[in-house]
């Protein structure tokens, strides 16, 4: 097991290097220069000084090599925009709200989705099933920013139940969380329903019934675990789409999170912040995939990895 995890971590590092390289060169293709958007007009001379200061006058391969060496040592550089604040500082500052929002949406969405899917499966072919199905289709096909706008309009502007934006306490998290969790909820509900129906029709459930096990125990002890395996598969990609979802949702609700910062940095050609944020997202993505793979083994003994078997 330890060997397996170690091997996976090596692969992760290779993936990260590839991502860093690709992002670095792609980012340099962005139009404009980091200093063109600063309010005051710079003379050519001043701009040259700034470029030299940040090492942007050197040939690209040299810049790339320097960046990679620094990053390996944990130094992500300083921002071009915020009075030379280190990128790590900016990211750490912004990480809190994003992580909070993302985790809240993912956990609530997944749990609600699983419950909804199970209820739909148990009440198969009744109005409960049909309405949960319609909800799921709506949740999957309508993008989160549409919900965000609607939620803002009705709950914040019209009925004034929740604040429309900003990030100043638990009540502020309600609307963005709902907007963000609808997609994972819908996906989970659909998967869970299909899987539950399949599992409930299987021989081992009939055997459990023949043993005299109560219907509720059959649902939770026998069926749920087996139905969860494919749901976990979608959990990985879903988390990823949730992260990209936060980019838009944070803009709409003015949440001071990473996503909002990321979009702004791209507009401002703030190379170190773009790189730093991209790397953070990548690390998260790759870790989630690893965690999902390890989760399989926890739930399904057949997929459990045996150490050292190559």
């Amino acid at each position: 097991m330890a060997k397996y995890i170690l091997r996976r971590i090596v692969y992760m590092l290779i993936t990260l290097i590839i991502i860093a390289t690709a992002t670095f060169f792609l980012m340099k293709l962005l139009p404009g220069s980091p200093f063109s958007s600063i309010g005051a007009k710079l003379t050519e001379e001043q701009e040259a000084i700034l470029l030299e200061k940040y090492g942007l006058d050197e040939p690209l391969p040299v810049q790339y090599a320097k960046y990679m060496v620094n990053m390996a040592q944990g130094d992500l550089g300083v921002s071009f925009q915020y009075n030379n604040r280190p990128v790590t500082d900016i990211i750490l500052d912004r990480l809190g709200p994003s992580a909070h929002l993302g985790a809240q949406a993912l956990i609530i969405g997944t749990i609600l989705g699983i419950i909804l899917g199970m209820i739909a499966a148990i009440r198969h072919n009744t109005w409960v099933d049909y309405s949960s199905n319609i909800l799921a289709v709506i949740g999957i096909s309508i993008p989160s920013f549409v919900f965000a706008g609607l939620l803002q309009y009705y709950f914040a502007v019209k009925w004034q139940i929740f604040p429309p934006s900003f990030w100043e306490g638990p009540i502020y998290t309600v609307l963005p969380t709902i907007a963000l969790m609808i997609f994972p909820m819908a996906v989970c509900a659909r998967f869970m329903r299909t899987e539950m129906l399949e599992v409930l029709g299987s021989d081992y459930i009939e055997l459990a019934r023949a043993k005299g096990v109560k219907s509720t125990s059959i649902m939770f002890k026998h069926a749920m675990r087996n139905a969860l395996i494919p749901v976990i598969t979608v959990l990985g990609p879903m988390t990823v789409s949730l992260m990209t979802g936060t980019l838009v949702i944070e803009q709409i609700f003015a949440v001071p999170g990473l996503g909002e910062q990321f979009v702004r940095s791209i507009n401002e050609n703030d190379y170190p912040v773009i790189m730093g944020t991209t790397m953070l997202f990548s690390v998260l993505f790759i870790s989630i995939i690893l965690i999902v793979d390890l989760l399989y083994g926890l739930i399904d003994p057949r997929i459990r990895v045996s150490g050292g078997k190559d």
């Binding site: 299987s202 021989d203 081992y204 009939e206 055997l207 459990a208 019934r209 023949a210 043993k211 005299g212 096990v213 026998h222 675990r225 087996n226 739930i299 399904d300 003994p301 057949r302």
Partner: peptide, 19 residues
């Protein structure tokens, strides 16, 4: 069920809970 009357099924490969 399972106490007074119990049952053996056709396919042992699928009649036990895999997890």
């Amino acid at each position: 069920r399972g106490k007074d009357i119990s049952m053996i099924f056709q396919d042992p490969m699928t009649s036990l809970n895999p997890t």
